[in-house]
């Protein structure tokens, strides 16, 4: 898995580097076959014979300066006009949600790998410019056996579905931040004989400050359930607990946020702080069986094209313990597509 991850990151990085290079020099035009007339009585295609006078190679015709040869021609004007598509603000910083929603009928897909063997997938679609639905797998949910277990393992794949709705930036009034209310919930996942689920209700605001800086601030209300043999000893029965039963609403709430800066036209620096549940199956008290752990991430995003972005950075799964040994380097590639939107626009005409 690590080899596959390294290979994918290498391919992605190579693509980015190649895409970032300047365009090649403009090549010269090939000789115009009809531009230099042959001498009368001679076959221009015949090989030169001994005794023939030396021929002077005519200079190749030079293209008029106002019409240089373009190896990457622009689309023909005959293509039907399409309304200009605005740039898409990403629905996530690195691991935490933003207040930005995908435009209507725009697809977003992201794949990620990290050096800890984690693999993630996230696919979303914008709904009516006011909502967004997505399914994903996350590797952020972690598990431990008991209090003496110092290293937590990730549970993966952990499938989730999400639904977010909100309003875009400057939509209601000038300088109004984008606001999104989101709900994410997992399918029931079984790991090491225990069944668990998580749910997260978020409210987040995002605001651009100029062209080069944006800030995201929000709060998350977490819940989770855990079922299985939660007590040690013989003749213990399976039982289930929920986070809202063993914690107070204050314990369920966590603030999160992130910042993004654009030092170069296509490159962004991203930092975010989020939270993820951790299950401890045999911890002594129920309150310790489900806990929230802070996750700090930082990295860069490079916009390879309007439809493709690559991200790389560092994620510390439990920054609360300042344990950098568990830090992971990750690589992510995301794609966006207006294809469905174009099809819908055509169908409406």
């Amino acid at each position: 898995m690590k080899q596959l991850g390294r290979s994918l990151m290498l391919v992605v990085a190579t693509t980015a580097v190649a895409r970032a290079q300047p365009q090649p020099d403009v090549p010269t035009l090939p000789p115009d076959p009809g531009g230099a007339p042959a001498a009368p009585g001679t076959d221009p295609t015949a090989d030169p014979q001994p005794g023939d006078p030396p021929t002077v190679q005519a200079d190749p015709p030079v293209a008029p300066p106002e019409a240089p040869y373009d190896p990457y021609p622009a689309p023909s004007a005959s293509v039907p006009d399409e309304p200009p598509r605005p740039p898409i603000n990403m629905p996530e910083v690195l691991t935490t949600p933003t207040g930005f929603l995908l435009p209507a009928a725009v697809f977003y897909t992201k794949f990620g790998l990290d050096t800890g063997g984690g693999a993630t997938f996230d696919s979303r679609i914008g709904l009516g410019d006011v909502a967004e639905f997505g399914v994903a797998t996350t590797d952020a949910i972690r598990q431990r056996q008991d209090d003496s277990d110092e290293d937590s393992d990730r549970i993966q794949p952990y499938f989730t579905a999400s639904f977010r709705l909100g309003v875009g930036e400057d939509r209601l009034f000038k300088h109004q931040p984008a606001v999104a209310l989101g709900f994410r919930k997992s399918f029931e996942t079984k790991s090491e004989g225990y069944e668990s689920r998580i749910a997260e209700l978020t409210l987040v605001a995002s605001k651009h400050f100029g062209d080069k800086f944006a800030m995201h601030v929000g709060g998350a209300f977490w819940d989770a359930s855990l079922a299985g043999q939660l007590d040690s000893g013989d003749d213990v029965e399976d039982r289930s607990i929920t986070f809202h039963d063993v914690a107070t609403p204050k314990d369920q709430f966590r603030p999160f946020g992130g910042i993004q800066a654009r030092p170069l036209p296509r490159s962004l620096i991203l930092i975010d702080l989020g939270w993820a549940p951790e299950f401890c199956y045999q911890c002594a008290t129920d309150a310790r069986k489900i806990r929230l752990r802070p996750v700090l991430s930082w990295g860069v995003r490079y916009e390879v094209a309007s439809w493709m972005r690559i991200e790389s950075g560092v994620r510390v799964p439990d920054i609360g313990d300042a344990n950098l040994l568990n830090a992971q380097i990750f690589g992510q590639v995301s794609f966006t597509s207006w294809g469905l939107r174009r099809a819908i626009d055509r169908a409406k005409q």
């Binding site: 579905a161 639904f163 709900f183 919930k185 689920r197 819940d223 359930s225 929920t242 809202h244 609403p249």
Partner: peptide
């Protein structure tokens, strides 16, 4: 197209209510 977050709370039942923090019982419907 319909998309929504669903909330359900039992009223006057024999089962204990999930409480205000019980969002793990919410669902997403399409």
């Amino acid at each position: 197209f319909d998309g929504s977050i669903g909330y359900q709370q039992e009223v006057g039942t024999v089962e204990p209510p999930a409480g205000r923090g019980g969002i793990v019982q919410w669902d997403i419907r399409l």
